[in-house]
C-alpha cells in the first residue's frame, strides 16, 4: 500500500471530477489544494507510478460514444491453457476486460470471461468471430451474453460471478410470486400494482421481491417468454449416436456451428442431443448435412410435429 498524505488525498479529491479544462490545469489544481504546479505534477507522477491512479486522461462512457452493444463472452478452457489464452485475448483493443473466474458446475462450465464492446450487436459478433478464429478460442465451448438495457431490468442471470450458495432461501412472498406469476402478468399502466392486488402485496413490495429474486438468480428474468417459432425462426432437435472414443471431437465439431444453440450429453446409445436454430428456411437441413459430412455419423433430426404443452412452470 502506498502511503498517501493529506495533500495527496486533497489532490485526488480535487481531480475526482476531472482535470480543469484550462490552459494550465496543474497550476489551477495546485491553487485549489494550496501547493505549487511543480508539486502537483511530482505528486501525480508518483501516484501514477505506484498505481494509485490507474489511468490518467479520458474515462470513456462507452454508451455515450455510441458503443451501444457489449457482450460478455465466456469459454470453457482446460485449466492448464486458460492463462495463455487469456493473455492472447486481452491483446485485442476491443476486449476491455478479461478474467479467469471459477466454474459453477454443472450449470456454469465456463472459466474464462471477457467483455467486448462495439457499435452494435453485429459489430460485436464480428469481433467475437475474430477472437474465436485468430486465437483458436472457438475450439472450446463458449457462450455470448449481450448486456442488458441500461434501465434496471431483471435480465438473464447465470450466476457466474456469484459466490452465493446454490439454493436460495425464499420467503412467503417470494413463493407467492413464483407460484402465481409465471404467467398472467398484466399489460396495463401499473402492472405491478395490479398483479400485487391479487397477492396481497403493494406495488413497492412486488418490485422489491422480484428484484431480489432476480439479483439472487432465483429468477432468470421477469418478463415475456417468447416463442421462437412464431417469430419465423426454425428450431430442430437432433441426435447422434457417437462412439465413446470420439465423443469430445464430435462435440467440438457440432458445437462449432453457430446454429447449434444447446448441446447435451445424455445416457443412451443416442448420446448427443442438440438444438439447431436458423432464421432462413432450409438452413437447418444444410447444417445437419454439414455435421454428417464432418463427422461421418448419421444425424437423426427430431423436428416438432405437434406441441401438446410447454409449461416450464414450477411450484415452490
Amino acid at each position: 500500500m502506498t502511503e498517501l498524505d493529506d495533500t495527496d488525498r486533497a489532490l485526488v479529491a480535487a481531480l475526482a471530477a476531472g482535470l480543469p479544462l484550462v490552459q494550465e490545469p496543474y497550476a489551477e489544481i495546485g491553487s485549489r489544494v494550496g501547493i505549487s504546479e511543480t508539486d502537483v505534477m511530482a505528486r501525480l507522477r508518483r501516484l501514477d507510478d505506484t498505481g494509485v491512479i490507474k489511468r490518467f486522461g479520458l474515462v470513456v462512457q462507452h454508451r455515450e460514444l455510441g458503443f451501444n452493444a457489449n457482450a460478455m463472452v465466456v469459454w470453457d478452457v482446460p485449466d492448464d491453457l486458460v492463462g495463455e489464452l487469456g493473455r492472447h485475448l486481452s491483446v485485442y483493443d476491443f476486449v476491455t476486460l478479461c478474467y479467469r473466474r471459477p466454474r459453477r458446475l454443472p450449470q456454469w462450465p465456463f472459466n474464462l470471461f471477457c467483455m467486448v464492446h462495439g457499435k452494435d450487436r453485429n459489430a460485436v459478433r464480428a469481433q467475437i468471430a475474430i477472437l474465436n478464429e485468430e486465437t483458436d478460442a472457438g475450439r472450446y465451448p463458449n457462450a455470448v451474453l449481450f448486456s442488458r438495457k441500461r434501465f434496471k431490468q431483471c435480465g438473464a442471470r447465470y450466476g457466474a460471478a456469484k459466490e452465493t450458495a446454490d439454493i436460495i432461501p425464499l420467503d412467503r412472498n417470494d413463493r407467492q410470486i413464483i407460484n402465481n406469476l409465471q404467467g398472467g402478468f398484466p399489460v396495463c399502466d401499473a402492472p405491478f400494482a395490479e398483479a400485487g392486488r391479487e397477492l396481497g402485496l403493494n406495488e413497492d413490495e412486488m418490485i422489491r421481491h422480484i428484484r431480489g429474486m432476480c439479483d439472487s438468480g432465483v429468477l432468470s428474468r421477469f418478463g415475456p417468454l417468447f416463442n421462437a417459432e412464431r417469430l419465423g425462426g426454425e428450431v430442430v432437435l437432433a441426435a447422434i449416436a457417437v462412439p465413446a472414443d470420439r465423443f469430445d471431437d464430435v462435440a467440438e465439431a457440432v458445437n462449432a456451428h453457430p446454429e447449434v444453440a444447446h448441446n447435451y450429453a445424455r445416457d443412451h446409445r443416442l448420446n448427443m442431443w442438440f438444438v439447431v436454430s436458423a432464421e432462413r428456411p432450409g438452413r437447418i437441413d444444410e447444417v445437419i448435412a454439414e455435421i454428417e459430412a464432418e463427422t461421418g455419423l448419421h444425424v437423426y433430426p427430431m423436428p416438432k410435429e405437434e406441441e401438446y404443452f410447454i409449461g416450464l412452470k414450477v411450484t415452490v
Binding site: G159, D166, L181, V218, L219, S220, F222, L225, R230, V314
Partner: peptide
C-alpha cells in the same frame, strides 16, 4: 407498446409473461 405486447400475447408470440424461474437455483437439478 401495450397494444403490441397484448397482440403478441394473443398471437402466441409471447407464450406468457411474468416470473421465469431458474430451475437450478430452486434446487430442481
Amino acid at each position: 407498446v401495450m397494444a403490441r405486447m397484448q397482440r403478441m400475447l394473443d398471437d402466441g408470440v409471447i407464450r406468457r409473461m411474468g416470473a421465469v424461474p431458474n430451475h437450478y437455483r430452486l434446487g430442481i437439478k
